[in-house]
Design a protein around this nucleic acid. Structure first.
Length: 497
RNA sequence: GCACCGCUAGCUCAACUGGCAGAGCAGUUGACUCUUAAUCAAUUGGUUCGGGGUUCGAGUCCCUGGCGGUGUACCA
């Protein structure tokens, strides 16, 4: 739409590019030696001002021309600074070049720092070089005293053209800088506990470790189907079997499912496994990971979804059935499926009438309890029916397993178990999943014969945790949508309708 | 999936009950040596998301499709 007017602006700029080339000026030179980042020079202003010749490189963001002298602002990766350019100072030729610049051009400038009459720290430009010619106009944003005017606000365009969002809405950068800091902190936590960071296949002949539909692809040379991983769990367990006793991986996972505020088709999780520990150990460990993160970020209370949450407090722990029982006022430990169904109906929880005890309990929990778990809470003892990779709860009848999930502000943040390591039991559980698949559940897990064989060689008692990092970053940066913590969220192609 | 809201110039927005599609910024031309949402003067720029319909006349009303946002459901 409105291509014509955009084309006019662009053809003007293309013409400038041409005439520069004709004058023998390369509008795209190869390098520029800058002496300072903008913010570094501003911090060191008193040392540098009036004395030292310094240089910056950056993008021209605004301009105020007043005849033979001008002010402009450039932005580099660190920040912005005002430039003062006078014809007297830089000469007629350079001043003409400056007046021919467009917003969005990259330039290199050198000169001395000064303070303007109104007290703004400014570079008095002595020389100026074009570093890259802009030919497509940037969204035009005005700024004053930290307030922005006429911003670039269309969320769709911001997600589709994230590079523009980053240029024009600098606060967006902070989320991604913080994301990197969180990764660094997590790495430090595990590296410091003698964990080994590993990389396992993203392209897998069979997918597993979670209940989800996969993306499928095809390898030409092998002429075989391959799946993009939905989780790295089964490979990390192979490594535990192989004798690496503590492993972790930042795992980009792919799930062929719906998209919404909290789901992107590709997302990042961290999973870690440690030999000879159980889920009680893991709860303590997860709590200390959060404390470690808070210390590194220098913050203990986080605002998220309108709640103020202290992540350094002791996390609550409670079995799933108890939490549901508290809510419905019925002792569920002795309830049968029929009674649970009645409870579901009473609380208007929509369920499949063929659902088993575990699925019903899970439904009740999701509908009635989870939204109210605001303070950090480990929900423990999940039904075996929905946990095919977890060990039976010790000293019990086998209805429940040693598993926990961590909830904060009504959302799930971690999922962990005392990992099942009995190969006979594991085979039976996966075969039960396969039966569910036969019955039409296309998210049920598949039997991975190689994984079962690996376990038959012997797997030590092991604890393992999976934690969704995108959601963690949403929590720690107070962003309500996963799209705000992904640089390039998945979008439908733009179409002309 | 369902509901609601949105889509008009490069950007931000306006246009009453259906009556000539507008403004600011950006762009272009000119003036201006301490401005800072610079200012002043002039000026260019439109497939109003696509398609169909009603009407003398549609940005506006109706149908249909697209994309996005929010909520909700399903799903981990």
């Amino acid at each position: 739409m409105s291509e014509r007017t955009l084309k006019e602006i662009m053809s003007q700029r293309l013409a400038k590019r041409e005439s520069l080339l004709n004058e023998g000026v390369n509008p795209y030179p190869y390098k520029f030696d800058r002496s300072h980042l903008i913010t570094a020079a501003l911090e060191d202003f008193d040392q540098l001002a009036e004395k030292t010749e310094i240089s910056f490189a950056g993008r021209l963001m605004s301009r105020r021309v007043m005849g033979k002298a001008s002010f402009a602002n450039i932005m580099d990766g660190s920040g912005r600074i005002q430039l003062f350019i006078s014809r007297e100072e830089i000469g007629v030729e350079a001043y003409t070049l400056f007046k021919g610049l467009d917003l969005g051009d990259f330039i290199g400038v050198s000169g001395k720092l000064m303070t303007t009459r109104t007290g703004e720290k400014t570079l008095k430009v002595a020389s100026l070089t074009l570093l890259s010619k802009n030919i497509r106009p940037l969204p035009n944003v005005k700024e004053k005293d930290g307030q922005t005017f006429d911003g670039f606000e269309d969320k769709e365009q911001r997600y589709r053209k994230r590079y523009l969002d980053l240029i024009v809405n600098p606060e967006v950068k902070e989320t991604f800088v913080k994301r990197a800091a969180i990764y660094r902190s997590i790495r430090k936590f595990f590296d410091g506990s003698d964990y080994l960071e590993v990389e396992t296949p993203i392209l897998q002949p069979l997918y597993g470790g979670a209940s989800a539909r996969p993306f499928m692809t095809h390898h030409n040379a092998l002429n075989m189907p391959l799946y993009l991983r939905i989780a790295d769990e089964l490979y990390l367990k192979r490594l535990i079997i192989g004798g690496f006793e503590k492993v972790y991986e930042f795992s980009r996972n792919f799930r062929n499912e719906g998209m919404d505020r909290t789901h992107n088709p590709e997302f990042t999780a961290i999973e870690w496994y440690e030999a000879y520990v159980d889920y009680h150990y893991l709860m303590d460990q997860v709590e200390s990971l959060f404390k470690h993160l808070c210390a590194d970020l220098g913050q203990s209370t986080f605002s998220f979804k309108g709640h103020e949450i202290d992540l350094t407090q002791e996390f609550q722990r409670a079995p799933m059935a108890e939490l549901v029982a508290e809510h419905v006022g019925i002792d569920l430990a002795t309830a049968n499926e029929k009674e649970l169904l009645t409870v579901c109906r009473k609380h208007k929880v929509d369920v499949d009438t063929n659902a088993n005890y575990g699925q019903l309990l899970d439904e009740l929990f999701d509908a009635l309890v989870q939204p109210h778990l605001i303070e950090p809470t480990f929900v423990t003892e999940y039904p075996k029916a929905i946990s095919p990779l977890a060990k039976h709860l010790r000293d019990s009848d086998g209805t429940f397993v040693e598993r926990f999930e961590l909830f904060i502000a009504g959302s799930e943040f971690a999922n962990a178990f005392s990992e099942l390591n009995d190969p006979v039991d594991q085979r039976a559980r996966l075969e039960a999943q396969a039966a569910l698949r036969e019955a039409g559940d296309d998210e049920a897990q598949v039997v991975d014969e190689d994984f079962l064989q690996a376990m038959e060689y012997g797997m030590p008692p092991t604890g393992g945790v999976g934690m969704g990092l995108d959601r963690l970053i949403m929590l720690l940066t107070d962003n309500p949508s996963i799209r705000d913590v992904l640089l390039f969220p998945q979008m439908r192609p733009e179409s002309k309708g």
